[in-house]
Design a protein around this nucleic acid. Sequence first.
RNA 1: GGGCCGGUAGCUCAGUGGUAGAGCAUCUGACUUUUAAUCAGGUGGUCGUAGGUUCGAUCCCUACCCGGCUCACCA
Length: 484
Amino acid sequence: MSLEDDLLKQRLERTREIEALGFQPYGRRFDYSITIPEILERYSAKTGEELEAERVPLRIAGRIATVRRMGKAGFAHLLQNGAKVQVYIRKDAVPARDYQLYEYLDLGDIIGVEGYLFRTRTGELSVHAEKLEFLSKTLLSMPEKWHGLEDIEIRYRQRYLDLISSPESREVFVKRAKLIGSLRRQLEARGYIEVETPMLQRIYGGAAARPFVTHHNTLDIPLYLRIAPELNLKRLVVGGLERVYEINRNFRNEGISFKHNPEFTMLEFYQAYADFEVMMDLSCELLKQAAIDVTGSAVVEYQGEALDFGNIERLTMQQAVKRHAPGENWQAAGMDLVHLFEHHVEEKLIQPVIIYDFPVEISPLAMRKPSDPRFTDRFEIFAYRMEIGNAFTELNDPQEQRRRFDMQLEMREKGDEEAHQMDEDYIRALSYGMPPAGGEGIGVDRLTMLLTNQRSIRDVILFPQLRPEGEIGIAAKLRELDPT
RNA sequence: GGGCCGGUAGCUCAGUGGUAGAGCAUCUGACUUUUAAUCAGGUGGUCGUAGGUUCGAUCCCUACCCGGCUCACCA
């Protein structure tokens, strides 16, 4: 028998022993009086004498992170919401049954403790236990306490272990939630309303990408997972929802890399009667405030660089080529300019920067520049070589939109799988008249990377897409050890 | 998909063409304020998988699987 099987067997056995003591091996409800982070917040400054005088009673719950047993007394650290507090259990201070329970505990078990606060001889704020409650059993071993979980693959596949053993990882996802909260708050404050549009679409559009295909049984039709919500959001602008936004998943059936996950979170927002310059100003405000809300500063440390989200420069694509690709023909247009930009400029864009005036060839949904029809009123935001935002003055002329779709269809016939499909329903919507509007998309995962100093998009997505892991086998082991 | 690096005990990692190692965890014993608790003793391994070379392979070779980085594609 392997060690792991042996441990599993031991712990199942121990579960029964705990039950025999009169505890429920899997408890139900435990009303704690304070959380562990709150304990640290409120009592860290108190001296041992003050605590002794007050004798603060409390009930806490958490997962056992460490145990130190010394015969007739011992210590444990309880972990709750990323914070730990020490518990002191002595044989003559708790019921005999509870002390026996303490001796049965394994690292990773979840318990409740009733007691009072004190400081140990070495000064550590601790809970002097008077009563223990058993709440949940771990059957498998926790990651090693000193090094934590180092195996990147396990961190992604079993994120719960990562969250338990790595406070830094937990913090990334707390910050991600703060970022999304910040974006919502800022948009709401400007009169935007949040909407949800279909993920399952008959025609995919709003971006250049290959889709995932699925099938609806009752309707017996193929459906695509959306590659962008863009066209639906603009239908809503036609309908008079003048300021709308959506924060949700897009799906693109393409490569996976440190900055690409097949499903990713996009913020898209549309504002009627605005144009791309209004969106530029808005972007700068949103990004600056988001950086402050998440990190406390508009200047953010990323991979050794200080990225300043409070001061975003604006360059046309041609100006960017002129600056970063000297010797190249910066006055180029069309695909030539795009290639110059992609091959020479993008890699040099470290500081957050707005690049505007994109060639019409790659901008089928953006309005042309009145002064130069080779270009569109479109910009993208770059930071640390990554595109994090994309915005433009929305094309609202149905005739022109039809021509753009026709242009995309030609590209598709020449083999461009990512060229836009014809979306007649969208053209019909535009034919009812869409107010002029500015629209923008911001990649929430990438922005999270930048604001949390993470190198890989997998580190800011709780369950990144991985290849299947193969046989796990725990069900068979449990089946074999099931006494019933 | 191409290139490079990695996969050894539950975890973190050493290591060698000739009987597979450490620390933590686990088990037994001692210990009523410890701090990676300590001390003594024990258990635990298809060395990623499958072939090949060899008297002998965890080690060398080939293919494959999984992961990371990178290039291509993309946001």
